[in-house]
């Protein structure tokens, strides 16, 4: 146990913060522990956190995808446009929308890999471009009147109190953990993030893994966009605008190194839970949105700073332990 705790120091810190948050929320708000609230807590940010899970893969792999929020908007816009102007079965429209998301990821992945451009720049262009594509499709219109079953999937509980999206998130998290921690693909993601050249020299298909990740990122963003459309019941060109920084914040808070090669799905999950609980607790206490954002910002800095300072102080003490390693330096 202590061995595990030592190698997962980040997760331990986050777990502590999460527990404190939960206890504080439970004491401060009588509404917090209700089942409805707990479901809502996930449901209200479900699209962001689903994308955060795949973003963790991309960042561990040493890349970044800034275009996710725009791809969410783009896929949803494709879905809405097909629904509005063709007689296509709605399920087919959904599939095409998902394919559009995957295609967006594929294009960016190919540019990154084949032209060897930094993904930061490529996906920054994607961020502008795919948002633009969504606006091209929808202009100033809001498209709704989706089939009732679709709206219901987004808005009503499906299994017990859980809406589809929350179930999807749970499954996605489990699959992500499995893939990252247990499979050869996950291993490659880490090793490439740690050193792409070593991987290349070891016969790992670096380009293939990267392209697959970008496609997965696009596909997941597309999926999240479709889920969002179902939850909102209608789609506009601005859907999910500005989500990217929130998503990246959650991943980095989860202890994933921006330089790639390290981070765990457990850490990302804990970071997601922590952020959601803090926002929910503050929301129930009628604290303004901007202060919620600021609190998350403070937490992001504090969660790296405090262990750093603690280890600094400890290293000054006689018989102190070895310095804490931070998530990324």
């Amino acid at each position: 146990m202590s061995e595990w705790a030592r190698s997962h120091r980040w997760e331990v810190v986050l777990g502590g913060v999460l527990v404190i948050t939960i206890v504080a929320n439970a004491i401060l708000s009588p509404y917090y522990l209700g089942l409805d609230n707990i479901v809502n807590l996930f449901w209200l940010s479900i699209e962001k956190i689903i994308v955060a899970v795949i973003m963790a893969f991309v960042i561990i792999n040493g890349e970044i995808d800034l275009s996710v929020a725009s791809v969410m908007g783009f896929s949803a816009a494709v879905l809405a446009t097909l629904h509005e102007s063709t007689g296509l079965p709605f399920v087919a429209a959904i599939l095409i929308a998902l394919a559009a998301g995957a295609l967006a990821g594929l294009i960016q992945g190919l540019v990154v890999v084949k032209l060897q451009l930094p993904s930061l720049v490529v996906t920054l262009a994607g961020l502008i471009g795919f948002r633009g594509a969504a606006r091209v499709l929808l202009e100033d219109r809001s498209v709704g009147e989706f089939p009732e079953w679709f709206d219901r999937l987004g808005q009503r509980a499906l299994l017990g109190p859980f809406p589809l999206a929350v179930i999807v998130f749970g499954v996605a998290l489990a699959i992500a953990w499995f893939v990252l921690d247990r499979t050869a693909f996950g291993r490659k993601v880490y090793v490439i993030g740690s050193s792409a050249e070593v991987s290349r020299y070891s016969g790992v298909d670096v380009d293939g893994v990267k392209i697959r990740l970008f496609v997965m990122s696009g596909l997941t963003a597309g999926f999240a966009g479709v889920l969002f459309a179902a939850r909102l019941g209608s789609v506009r060109g601005s859907l999910a605008e500005f989500f990217e920084l929130d998503i990246i914040t959650m991943v980095l808070l989860g202890g994933v190194s921006i330089f790639g090669g390290s981070g765990t799905m457990l850490g990302v999950a804990l970071a997601i839970f922590t952020v959601l609980n803090i926002r929910n607790g503050l929301g129930l206490a009628n604290v303004d949105g901007i202060i919620q954002t600021g609190t998350v910002g403070l937490l992001l800095i504090g969660s790296v700073l405090v262990p750093n300072l603690a280890s600094h102080i400890r290293s000054r003490l006689p018989f102190g332990g070895p310095p804490l390693s931070t998530a990324d330096t």
Partner: peptide, 9 residues
Amino acid sequence: RKLGLSMTQ
């Protein structure tokens, strides 16, 4: 260090 081993792994 650069091409042979993934040092952090």
